[in-house]
Lab assay of single mutants.
Amino acid sequence: QVATSTVRILGMTCQSCVKSIEDRISNLKGIISMKVSLEQGSATVKYVPSVVCLQQVCHQIGDMGFEASIAE
């Protein structure tokens, strides 16, 4: 089973930030795809909930120095 959710990301300033986040999160087990939008300050994450949760994704992004939260 696959889920798609949006994560809000604060602190991104350039495409390099976007690429860094996409590269790191895409390597997590259970992540199918991730598309980060600098303009919208968010990311669309396609993932397998039984393998990885959005809290883990937000935590990983937080470790990179950005502020991440699950969009309502």
Rank of each mutant, 00 (worst) to 15 (best):
Q1E: 15
Q1V: 09
Q1C: 15
Q1M: 06
Q1K: 12
V2T: 15
V2Y: 14
V2N: 04
V2I: 10
A3K: 11
A3W: 15
A3V: 13
A3T: 12
A3D: 06
T4P: 02
T4C: 15
T4W: 13
T4D: 04
T4L: 12
T4M: 12
T4V: 12
T6P: 03
T6I: 13
T6F: 15
V7A: 01
V7G: 00
V7S: 00
R8F: 14
R8C: 11
R8A: 07
R8Q: 08
R8K: 09
I9S: 00
I9A: 00
I9D: 01
I9L: 03
L10F: 14
L10A: 10
L10Y: 14
G11I: 07
G11P: 01
M12H: 00
M12K: 02
T13C: 06
T13D: 05
T13I: 10
T13G: 03
T13Q: 07
T13F: 15
T13E: 08
T13S: 09
C14R: 02
C14I: 05
C14T: 05
Q15Y: 14
Q15S: 10
S16C: 05
S16E: 12
S16K: 14
C17F: 05
C17M: 05
C17L: 05
C17W: 05
C17E: 13
C17Y: 05
C17T: 04
C17N: 06
V18C: 04
K19M: 09
K19R: 14
I21A: 01
E22K: 05
E22S: 05
E22Q: 08
D23A: 13
D23Q: 13
R24I: 07
R24W: 06
R24F: 07
R24E: 10
I25H: 01
I25V: 08
I25M: 07
I25W: 03
S26M: 13
S26K: 10
S26W: 06
N27E: 11
N27S: 13
N27Y: 07
L28G: 01
L28V: 08
L28D: 00
L28C: 04
L28Q: 05
K29L: 12
K29I: 11
K29C: 07
G30V: 08
G30W: 06
G30Y: 05
G30P: 03
I31M: 03
I31P: 00
I31D: 00
I31F: 04
I31A: 00
I32Y: 05
I32P: 00
I32C: 05
I32E: 01
I32H: 03
I32R: 04
I32M: 06
I32F: 05
S33D: 08
S33P: 00
S33C: 08
S33A: 09
M34I: 15
M34Y: 04
K35Y: 07
K35P: 00
K35E: 07
K35I: 08
K35L: 07
V36W: 04
V36Q: 00
V36N: 00
V36F: 05
V36D: 00
V36L: 04
V36R: 01
V36E: 00
S37M: 07
S37Y: 11
S37K: 05
S37T: 07
L38Q: 03
L38S: 01
L38A: 02
L38C: 06
L38T: 01
E39I: 10
E39N: 08
E39C: 07
E39Q: 11
E39A: 11
Q40V: 07
Q40L: 13
Q40G: 10
Q40F: 13
Q40R: 14
G41P: 01
G41I: 05
G41M: 11
S42D: 08
S42P: 03
S42R: 11
S42T: 13
S42K: 12
A43L: 07
A43W: 05
A43I: 06
A43H: 02
A43E: 03
A43V: 05
T44L: 13
V45D: 02
V45R: 02
V45T: 01
K46L: 15
K46T: 15
K46C: 15
K46A: 13
Y47P: 00
Y47F: 08
Y47I: 02
Y47D: 00
Y47V: 02
Y47N: 01
Y47W: 08
V48S: 13
V48R: 11
V48F: 15
V48I: 13
V48G: 02
P49W: 08
P49G: 04
P49H: 07
P49V: 07
S50A: 12
S50H: 08
S50Q: 07
S50L: 08
S50Y: 08
V51D: 07
V51E: 13
V51A: 06
V51Y: 06
V52G: 02
V52W: 04
V52C: 04
V52A: 04
C53S: 14
C53D: 11
C53Q: 10
C53G: 10
L54G: 01
L54H: 01
L54F: 04
L54M: 10
Q55T: 09
Q55R: 12
Q55W: 15
Q55L: 13
Q56N: 09
Q56I: 10
Q56K: 11
V57P: 01
V57S: 01
V57E: 02
C58K: 13
C58L: 15
C58G: 08
C58D: 03
H59P: 02
H59Q: 15
H59R: 15
Q60A: 15
Q60C: 05
Q60D: 10
Q60F: 14
Q60K: 11
Q60E: 15
I61T: 03
I61G: 03
I61P: 01
G62A: 14
G62M: 15
G62P: 03
G62D: 13
G62C: 12
G62E: 14
G62S: 15
M64W: 04
M64V: 03
M64S: 01
G65K: 02
G65C: 04
G65E: 03
F66R: 03
F66M: 02
F66D: 02
F66L: 03
E67N: 11
E67C: 06
E67D: 10
A68G: 03
A68N: 03
S69W: 14
S69L: 08
S69F: 14
S69P: 03
S69Y: 14
S69D: 06
I70W: 08
I70K: 03
A71N: 12
A71G: 09
E72Y: 13
E72A: 10
E72H: 14
